[in-house]
């Protein structure tokens, strides 16, 4: 049965989905960036007992589809551990540990690109390992990885659509519901526009950060 498209309720429903997507995006970024830095630091510790689990985690996270990881964390706990889980929480958890793996390798690459001479200079001046890492290394790493992190963030905005597979009512899923209601693909076109707007904001933000960090070269 066809219904005429009620644009205002369509837009409002799509905006609800957008808000969900934005929430998922922010929570993931805020949690996965520090987690990624921690994992990067662990990855660089010279003990096999630490390196092997970390490398295994990185391999699984980056080597299997995120969409499957979402399904795993949605259906695994009830089957094996006997309790149900909130969809949105599962999505945040799964996205966080997935993106943390990517950020970990991005951080590690950045950290290793800082000339070791600076760390030696800091060491002979008496700065501790911790002080050197936080005050000398990390600020420079942040500047170097901004373009890559911007790219990953824009991928994350798009990846929020994958949460639809476990029933999270984000933008893509809502667009799909509207398609079913109206038998029209217009909702998807509008959803596409909303993704584009979100990512334009993200891109503009990182561009601004990059400009601010350009007060020095090297």
């Amino acid at each position: 049965m066809l219904s005429a498209i009620n644009y205002s309720s369509m837009i409002s429903f799509l905006l609800d989905g957008t808000v969900k997507a934005v929430e998922l995006f922010f929570l993931t970024i805020v949690l996965s960036l520090p987690l990624g830095l921690l994992v990067a630091r662990l990855r660089m510790i010279k003990f096999k007992a630490v390196q092997l689990p970390v490398k295994f985690y990185l391999l699984i996270m980056r080597g299997t589809p995120l969409i499957l990881q979402l399904m795993f964390f949605m259906y695994f706990p009830p089957l094996v551990l006997g309790f149900g889980v909130d969809r949105f929480m599962v999505a945040v958890f799964s996205f966080t540990i997935n993106y943390a793996a990517y950020f970990a390798e991005i951080f590690r690459g950045g950290i290793e690109s800082i000339p070791v001479g600076q760390q030696e200079a800091a060491y002979v001046l008496g700065l501790s390992q911790f002080q050197t890492f936080i005050r000398i290394t990390v600020p420079q790493v942040v500047k170097r990885i901004i373009p890559t992190v911007a790219g990953e963030s824009m991928t994350l905005v798009k990846d929020t659509a994958l949460a639809s597979i476990i029933g999270v009512t984000e933008l893509f899923r809502n667009a799909g519901s509207l398609k079913a209601t109206y038998s029209s693909v217009i909702p998807f076109a509008v959803a596409g526009l909303f993704y584009l707007i979100m990512n334009s904001v993200v891109a503009a933000f990182y561009s601004r950060v990059e400009k601010k960090l350009n007060y020095y070269k090297g």
Binding site: P115, G117, Q118, E120, A121, V124, L125, K143, Y216, G218
Partner: peptide
């Protein structure tokens, strides 16, 4: 001991930021 001596490197190694 580290605090009582200084070292100047061939490549300076100033902190660029």
């Amino acid at each position: 001991i580290r605090l009582s001596i200084g070292l100047v490197f061939q490549s300076f190694h100033l902190f660029p930021h």
